[in-house]
Amino acid sequence: MKILVDEDLLYVKQLFSKLGEIVLLNGYNITIDCLKLIDALIVRSVTNVNAELLYNTSVKFVGSVTAGVDHLDLNWLTKSGVKFINAPGCNARSVVEYIFSGLFFLAKRYGFFLRDKIVGIIGVGNIGKLLCQLLDLLEVQTLLCDPPLAKGGAIGNWHALEKLVSEADILTFHVPLIYDGPYATWHMVDDDFLSALPSNRILINTCRGGVFDNYALLRALQNGKKINVILDVWEFEPKILLPLLYSIDIGTPHIAGSSIEGKIRGAQCIFNAYNNFISVDRVVNSPFLLPPIMYYRRLTSVLDEKLLSDLIHSVYDIYHDNISLKNNAEKFGYFEWFRKYYLNRREWSSLYVHSFYSADIEILRELGFS
């Protein structure tokens, strides 16, 4: 069989090569002409999969190594009998650790303690739920907003978005990109939202660029709105609004979910699903290719926010990615280049921590450290 794989999906290439001939192509350059004799298509979010791409091709399976599905025309795929699978939750841990790195960076820069803040989480799927759990471990108050879950009867202490806007010090977004209907999220953060938002708030977007109206956000900042912003996703990617990048605290090129562990989990999910699709009894469960070397840190004092911040930034310091993008964003193709060669980031589990304090050991273990 022939399988077309986005060339930037390193672990996917290595796994699927066991099953047949692999055709590699840049995700932005995949067209219908490339798919006439292809059995399976494995993509990232940069490839829109719809009738325009797949009509009258031989593709019977589409795998997307992403949590989101807004780049997939699910209705058309279903009607056309094309099996599709994504990898929800594969990058949840990576995104949550990215957020913590950003928050502790801001805490150090502006002199606050995270435990004194209220965090509003908009969208409580895999990422939002995990973020809430870890914040609870640190005794940080959270407010949750997820209208579809609330209406569906999901158990939770749900709040309206207006309450989060008025009361939460930090607002972090984890919603799909939906353009219309009762749960539309496109331009959720717009002129009206920003006008209602009190000063000295923190906004974080790691879901989809279009959830924030980038021009509205730039206008607010240029007009003196006193808010702090962390953006990993942008409208019009891979082109980004450069004045906005230079106006915010942290800007990165859509890499919040791009840990080595997250990429491996996504590859395993799609590979196992495809084996099931073609009725092959082969399942990958172990973390293949995961670098075995773990970092080591011995703690000699009781765990507090400063020490936890040091541990988190010893694994991943968001500021380095921010500086790299801001220093090079005007170079042609840098956004895509950064993502393509972004391979070395690890998760907290790669850090082995030793402490004499049993209570601290338990907290660190529950947070995800080894």
Rank of each mutant, 00 (worst) to 15 (best):
Y28C: 04
F356L: 14
I202V: 14
L308G: 08
N56T: 06
G257I: 02
S370V: 11
L308M: 08
G333V: 01
Y352R: 11
V229P: 03
I38C: 08
R93D: 03
H71D: 10
P238E: 11
L289S: 15
I204M: 07
L303Q: 04
K13Y: 03
A87K: 03
E52Y: 05
L217Q: 02
N50K: 04
K340A: 13
F277E: 12
A160Y: 09
N228W: 13
D116E: 06
Q14I: 03
Y295T: 14
N91Y: 02
G102M: 02
M188K: 13
G156A: 06
R208C: 09
N322C: 15
Y28K: 12
G81Q: 02
V353E: 08
I270M: 08
C269W: 11
R208A: 10
A359P: 10
G181Y: 08
S247G: 11
D281G: 12
E330H: 11
D6C: 02
K263H: 04
G89K: 05
D73T: 03
S17Y: 01
V124T: 08
N322M: 04
F100V: 03
N322V: 09
K13I: 15
T142I: 07
L149T: 01
L114T: 00
L149C: 00
D6M: 03
S80Y: 00
C132Y: 09
D8I: 07
V95L: 05
I202E: 10
S94D: 00
L131C: 05
R297N: 09
N327T: 06
N50S: 07
L53M: 06
L351H: 01
A92S: 12
Y316Q: 08
I204H: 04
L138Y: 01
C207R: 05
N214M: 09
I248V: 15
R109V: 11
L343C: 08
P88E: 03
